[in-house]
Amino acid sequence: MSVIVLVHALGSSARAWQPQVAALAERHKVLAPDLPGHGEAPGPFGLEPAAFAVAELIAAEPEPVHLVGISVGATVAMLAALDDPARIASLTLSGGTAHAPGVALQRNLMRLMPTGMIAALMSGMYAGGRPDRKSQAKADLRTAGKRAFLTGLTELAALDLRPRLADLKTPALILCGTKDKENIAPARELAETLPNAHLDLIPEAGHIWNLQFPDLFTAKLTEFIDR
């Protein structure tokens, strides 16, 4: 039985992986941790503490794991994989980036907003455009709070993993929705920089598309892992 570790987005929680956990649990051991400062995990949030928490989870497993990350969770997944590349059987990164100086502008805008406004503005995207998941997404955004976003975006703006990606020789699947336009170029860069990567652009999909098209996301992931 393969082990799959699912890493959620900044401002989200493990609950955002519910469709994948339900679909994958019969054939795989599925671990979906809350990152520090998110869901039920104590904070504060930071990229390195988040990556350390994921790396510890991976280290406890007897065999290499299939590591999956979405949005900033993809960056956390890369950091965790770089901690010990031999522990990673495969890497799936959706809407992620190894270098994102442009997020400094987003951070500066968020400085002006209260947490409630951030949750209201972002809950639709974090619900994958699904009204039935919007209240859950809003609650997760409120739990993470403004501080987590400011810290995460500040650290992301200063981070550049590109020189280290040659160390990740494991098979990698790079995913990005065609409607997630600002992350298409970073996805292409990841696919070109990682030594053993394949890029798959998903028609009509947005940023948090594992909730928008849950069955398709699960199918893409299981096809890759099985292959």
Rank of each mutant, 00 (worst) to 15 (best):
A74P: 09
G128D: 02
D34F: 10
G37A: 11
A55I: 12
G37H: 07
L190K: 01
C176P: 00
P49V: 04
E182L: 13
D34N: 12
A89R: 15
V68I: 13
T154M: 01
H8C: 06
M117Q: 15
S71R: 01
K138V: 00
M125I: 06
L168W: 02
T193P: 02
A119D: 05
A55T: 13
K179D: 12
Y126V: 06
Q212P: 04
H8Y: 04
N196R: 12
A53H: 14
W209N: 13
F45C: 06
A22K: 11
S135F: 04
G46W: 02
L67W: 03
W17P: 03
F224P: 01
A191Y: 05
W17L: 05
R27N: 14
P203V: 11
D180F: 08
G128Y: 05
P64E: 10
F213W: 00
L221D: 04
V103M: 08
V54T: 12
T151F: 05
M122Q: 15
V7T: 14
V72Q: 11
E26H: 13
R164E: 15
A137V: 06
Q18V: 02
N210K: 05
P36E: 10
P203Y: 10
H198M: 12
G43D: 05
P19E: 13
A127V: 06
G11L: 06
L105Y: 02
A158V: 03
T178D: 11
A14K: 12
R27W: 07
A100K: 04
P214K: 10
H8V: 06
H99G: 01
A81N: 05
A77T: 06
K134Q: 15
A80E: 11
Q136A: 12
L156V: 05
A32G: 07
L199N: 09
L35Y: 07
A89W: 09
D160L: 10
A41R: 09
L67I: 09
V68N: 06
S13N: 03
D167W: 02
R130Q: 15
D226N: 14
I4W: 01
G46P: 07
I118D: 04
V3A: 14
L173E: 02
Q106L: 15
F213E: 08
G128T: 08
R15A: 14
D180A: 08
A158M: 08
K181Q: 13
A197T: 03
E40H: 14
I88P: 00
H207I: 07
G43P: 01
K179S: 11
L67V: 06
D132F: 04
R27T: 11
K179G: 04
L201Y: 01
I174E: 00
P163F: 10
D180E: 08
A100D: 07
N196C: 07
G129T: 08
V72S: 10
P33T: 12
V5W: 12
D132K: 11
A166G: 14
L141A: 00
L57V: 09
V65T: 05
A51M: 08
T143A: 13
A98F: 02
D160M: 10
P85E: 07
H8W: 07
R130C: 10
A98D: 03
A139F: 00
E223M: 09
I202M: 09
E63P: 01
H207N: 03
P36G: 07
L82S: 10
G177Y: 00
F224N: 04
H8S: 10
I202S: 09
L67A: 02
I70G: 02
D160N: 15
R87I: 08
N210T: 14
S13G: 15
P64Y: 02
F45Q: 03
A148M: 03
L105P: 00
K169Y: 00
T115K: 04
